[in-house]
Design a protein around this nucleic acid. Sequence first.
RNA 1: GCCGGAGUGGCGGAAUUGGUAGACGCCAGGGACUUAAAAUCCCUUGGGUCGUCAGGCCCGUGCCGGUUCGAGUCCGGCCUCCGGCACCA
Length: 829
Amino acid sequence: MEKSARTMKYNFKEIESRWQKYWEDNKIFQAPEHPSRDTFYMLVMFAYPSGDIHMGHFRNYIIGDAVARYQMMKGKDVLHPFGWDAFGLPAERAAIQRGLHPAEWTYKNIEVSRNTLKKTGISFDWSREVISCDPEYYKWTQWMFVQLFKKGLACQKEGLVNWCPEDKTVLANEQVVDGKCERCHTQVEKKLQTQWYFKITEYADRLIDDLDKLPGWPENVKTMQKEWIGRSYGAEIDFIIKETGERLPIYTTRPDTIYGVTFMALAPESPIIGRLNLEGKYKADVEAYRRKAVKRSEIDRAAATGEKDGVFTGKYAVNPFNGELVQLWVADYVLAHYGTGAVMAVPGHDSRDFQFAKKYKIPIKIVIHPDANTQLNLAEMTDAYTEYGIMVNSAHFDGQFGQVAIKAVTEYAVKNNYGRFKKNFKLRDWLISRQRYWGAPIPIIHCPDCGAVGVPEENLPVLLPPVENYLPKGRSPLADVPEFMNVKCPKCGKAAQRDPDTMDTFVCSSWYYLRYIDPNNVSEPFSREKATKWMPINRYVGGITHATGHLIYFRFFQKFLFDIGWVKDPEPASILFNHGMVMDSQGEVMSKSRGNVVSPITLMDERGVDISRLGMFFTAPSEKEVLWSDDVITGVEKFVINRFYPMVESYRDSNPDLKQYFKLNDLPENEKAAYIKLNQTIKKVAEDSERLQFNTMISALMELMRDYSPSDNKNDALNDYIILKSIQLIAPMAPHMAEEMWAVCKQQGSIFRSSWPLADESALTFDTITIAVQVNGKLRGQIEIKKDTSETQVMDVVKKNDRIAGYLGEGRIVKTIYIPGKLLNIVIK
RNA sequence: GCCGGAGUGGCGGAAUUGGUAGACGCCAGGGACUUAAAAUCCCUUGGGUCGUCAGGCCCGUGCCGGUUCGAGUCCGGCCUCCGGCACCA
């Protein structure tokens, strides 16, 4: 019953499908091949086709859609494309679970999701759709690999890698969360393997430094990236292993504590241990410890923030600064992959070293005092003093402070040839090879004579063979396909073998934004000329989850393409916007296992696309999370169905002249308020559009409609004008409804081809305004004055106002503060 | 532990650069219409208090203090929550 009342007044099903057809037939959202006006590139993150779309997608895309439509109305050439991140583990896993071939599963899902998306009427330019598992696309992903390979930025190397025993493949550092596989949450193991890497670490400095050139990126994302890259400045100092004479370099950010070194610690994985010539008990202990440490997963090691343990090697190292001998230990709190895999331990001034020294009764030395008047007392210390301070017990460096001390000590080491300034990063090279089927094959041929040879560009793509046996087994399924594997070396022509691995799907997603610009180009990944016109991305909208993964990778790719002359900007996106999550009404994440999923499809069927959109926009600002419940819809639904839409409907059979211009002072008194309110609303909606504050845009329109009362004088020219402008203002948020109303008002063509309303700046306020009057900062009354009244004139009015005068009493007026048009504050004593 | 961000009515939230806190909406209550209900429309709605019912006064934006004529907004110190990183030497 409820529904029939709704459909009687506002037949959204009919209206929505009719306008969607109109948009498609008239190619309203097709971006021009060669833009002639200002461009606006509106990008939303493309989707994994692992099921149908959910509320999170819906929210993401309607935000992007409203921005795109707003920019269209502002007269920009808008590029608003969409595509599918179709390769990779999630799709492959879902396919395997259902006993389907990944290709079949993926394309089926794309079909389903695309149909749903088309029903949402999002203004995507579907003619530019890209699918990353199409050979026409991954040909160019492989081309990217080859370019990186040519520049030495793609390379094979042996190292300890993250191995997911469930997915039977290696993972990038970014795909390990809390020591577990990001996708299947299995504990990740460490394995020594040869794998392909992109040398993203060569871009570490620029990836950090250029963040400062991105004022349009949220602070939290920039901070997360900075910390993820983790740059630190320090020194590398060479200790010497006493018996073997081997150089033992260590990295430290605190060279000013060098005289406090009382032991050294090596990572259990350090190759140096093998060269120590350990004997007897020491040899047995160290070997047992190493076996134990390697077995412990990284998460165990990291979680053990309390207890540190290790084992003495029986060997000693020489501190080059003072010739002192210090014990050489193996301890698993030392990470093999950071710095040199060895540390100088200063228990007096490092908490971990302090604990370790206490546990194993290793001497502790104080070499830093907080300041000239505060001295540390070792006997009373329960933890290390880790702040900067004044060097003591440090030979001729005594008395130096903080950064100056660090510089002095390092310079001394440089001069004596046993140290150097050094910078370190937490960021590791990006491991991109996967021992899985569903990915772009790595375009490399291994020749017994020539080594790894890139597949010549004219031979791309290296097609992924349609194999039957694609299940993960620990090595790439492609290795078992002789027709695929056995090829001739492109350099010397001898028999050679393809690389059997496929690429991490994050490689595919690192450059998709450029393919949209020129999706059908068969001779290049994209046209440089077109890229110059559209790039950089004006707004990139997506979830926060990609802060330290995709959003670093795609910046890296852009920089690389910049370096080799393919793009003109070193950064891909000038503004990044992270929308909040959609949760259930209890604040829980929506998931199938919880059974609390609200489908945008059901919602759109029941309420219509536009009302669903308005509900989503209105309930919270875009960056905050939304707790979804039916109540979210109620207010906007009433607004549309009971107020806005019927008002416009009343025009259906009339033929009003809607081409009107107004001058505030020519309007009769009773219409001035309405005209002013309209202009205030236009101004507010435009400002809020720029900052994606849709909730307050809707409030403003609700206020305008509340104040607007056509019942008295229905065909009044001003009322018609207000209606028309209001329809334009709501159009980016409720596009189908707006088109329908626009047509009801006898306007020709799509509303998205009309120009965005401009506020009449001369009609934003009344001649007579109300200002607040405060006495000593407390509100004591309000007075009406002419707009341009001077302060003295206002004072005269105030003094005549009995109520306010009462507050002034016999107090002496010390001073007055007058904010024109707002308030007057009188300070009395 | 370190680094971000946030804390405003019963609820979602507004207040864009320090200038009338609580816009807009939900919920709730009251009224109109109706045989009745739903829907719709109108009114009330931060707390306390006085009231001749016209309106007034006090308190109030996590807590304590500060700057200022004036602080939700700025500064200092806490508390709580959310997010990220986490043995990075």
